[in-house]
Nucleic acid binder design. Sequence first.
DNA 1: GACGAAATTGGAATAATTCTAAAGAAGGCT
DNA 2: AGCCTTCTTTAGAATTATTCCAATTTCGTC
Lengths: 142, 142
Amino acid sequence: MSTHAIHSDALAQKLADSGLRNTPQREVVYDALLTKRNHPTADEVFARVKTQLPGISLATVYNCLETLVQCNLVRAVNFERAPTRYCPNLHPHAHFHDETTGTTHDIELPENLLAKIKAILPPGYNANAIEITFRGKMPDSR
Amino acid sequence: MSTHAIHSDALAQKLADSGLRNTPQREVVYDALLTKRNHPTADEVFARVKTQLPGISLATVYNCLETLVQCNLVRAVNFERAPTRYCPNLHPHAHFHDETTGTTHDIELPENLLAKIKAILPPGYNANAIEITFRGKMPDSR
DNA sequence: GACGAAATTGGAATAATTCTAAAGAAGGCT
DNA sequence: AGCCTTCTTTAGAATTATTCCAATTTCGTC
Ligand SMILES: [Mn+2]
Ligand SMILES: [Mn+2]
Ligand SMILES: [Zn+2]
Ligand SMILES: [Zn+2]
């Protein structure tokens, strides 16, 4: 069994859980994110999936990405007002935005640190999502 | 001496440090942020400052806000793709976005925790800014 | 008071995303 | 199989926060 099939099954399962249909468009969009995990924008995903499904529209790419986010298969990642990027890494992680290259990198976030961060919230504040973003340079960006 | 004057002096000082001029527009924009620290958008700042400087333009409000950010007197705060909000709190702090009310609140960030968060970066990653944002509900939002 | 640089202004332009309305699948039922 | 309903996709228009532009105004200096 290829990893591709494994992913398709995970997608079909999550879609079914949400009462949504599986479609070629959703499969190819999800696969585009999994194949090259460099936090692409919707436009970049559009370019990738057109090679596999030439008739797909940009609106559909936006629709599919939104669906994947709703299904908790993908995270939308925002940095300042730049175009939204998409990340299929489901582990708790922070993002590092390299100012030199414009690239975005995952930073593993230890569970205990996540708990410590949540603990700074005063009583009554109930968070259901945390975003941690670094901006800076990697001295040897290549 | 009023707190107003103190702030004007801080502004004049920082502008001079950056080789920029002090102007009525910059003063009134900065004062609008200091007077009601609820993370207003540029539009909201525009509405406030028009009462004091009726001829001011929205473009100038954007220009002044950008200048204040460059001078490190104000932080630009982004939440997903919503309009940028502006915060004159210079202490290290996180932001909590209340989904119920749409309001944004400052969360003090202890210095040692900030250090621990920076420590998760692998060697070679050099961050010069960190954004920490919570999204959730305050049970008794009023 | 003239000069050059910096700042402001109104309006046009930009660009990511969302909306809309119509056409195209798909699933369930008989 | 045929019908019905619902979901999905599609192309293009609309939205909107922000930026850009060219023309004026203001400011500091000589
Ligand atoms: Mn795959
Ligand atoms: Mn004041
Ligand atoms: Zn990621
Ligand atoms: Zn703040």
